[in-house]
Design a protein around this nucleic acid. Structure first.
Lengths: 183, 183
DNA sequence: CACTATACGGAACGATCGTTCCGTTTGTCA
DNA sequence: TGACAAACGGAACGATCGTTCCGTATAGTG
């Protein structure tokens, strides 16, 4: 692999990450190529399809997230570990429509390449939740899917109003989680 | 206005509501026309543009929501009134990608036609929240924007996992709202 | 320095979708 | 019922975007 090829591959990945994060799946491929400073043909030699490029970006995020989750499992405070991981998820998801879409299955179906890392994130998240519930620090009826949607919702809609705070929303959710279920 | 014209207008609005709800803004106009049983030309005589059609659908939802909100303001239980309105919002938003997009400003900018009803919904929501906070039934630091995002998030991602429950999520949020802010 | 395989850029192609146009049909009223 | 205006359907147009192709440039090698 030639040196310029490797360099361009990185440039394209970085440009795609930014472009997808900013504008979602809808960004024209040409715009990504332009942002990376390469031609469209070059982009397509590195990634056979737009979807493949998107997958590559998503996989990177997933792997980072899964690593964080495994680290959190080592913590001695199950509740706090879960909440911190949720905060981590929220940060990663903020203004990142790509991650949101991918985690949630909207837009395009994630292919096999991304399925592994995604499952890993879900599994780690599930373990963190179970641990916190077993310790009695989180109400026992909520599921991983609930938390995913809650977190994604807290971040999916950033950037419009000024009186909007992910921290405050996460605080509401975490407080609610610690109480016993009503009824 | 001829009778068939009025009938077709209603058919198109209903078809658009379903189509947008199911597939989001991305549905081809031709598919909406087909669903309504009319030609594309007919659709465009009633609504000058796809965006105008979308607006018409959104405005209807907004008006319904605003009416519900005003009714809730009459309730003698500020906290419960707020929570019930949030539930109403959630129902309306479930599997309704169009409402979500519109309330949130994603996808396309809402034009003047929809701006009025949207502002009205926000205003009523704000009054409900203030009333509940004044009664000490909801923590005082949360904003309308926070609640919007929380609710939309609870519903935006429906339909994938089976162990997913809007009720449970709303319960977590409402429980969290009733507690005092930490720290 | 020359030679070759590799990679590059961007023009061109085909599909999709919003919108327009026009020949045809249909509701309404005298 | 006859005639006219209003409305209809769907083919056609133009723009956008993903993808391909090919002539050109360049990194690596002896």
């Amino acid at each position: 692999m030639r040196a310029d090829a490797r360099r361009n591959r990185e440039l394209i990945l970085a440009a795609a990450d930014q472009a997808f994060a900013q504008d979602g799946l809808g960004v024209p491929v040409d715009r990504i190529a332009e942002r990376a400073g390469v031609g469209a043909g070059t982009l397509y030699r590195h990634f056979p399809t737009k979807e493949a490029l998107f997958e590559a970006v998503v996989v990177e995020h997933m792997q980072r997230l899964a690593a964080d989750g495994h680290a959190a499992l080592e913590s001695g405070h199950p509740g706090r570990a879960l909440f911190e991981f949720m905060g981590r998820l929220a940060v990663e998801a903020s203004a990142k429509r790509n991650l949101i879409d991918a985690l949630v299955g909207a837009g395009v179906d994630i292919k096999q390449a991304a399925a592994g890392p995604k499952a890993e994130v879900e599994q780690v998240f599930g373990q963190l939740l179970e641990r916190a519930q077993a310790a009695g620090e989180v109400r026992p009826d909520v599921t991983v899917s609930d938390l995913f949607a809650l977190i994604m919702g807290s971040c999916a809609f950033a950037g419009e109003g000024s009186d909007w705070s992910p921290d405050r929303m996460l605080s509401v959710v975490c407080t609610g989680l610690q109480a016993a279920p009503p009824g």
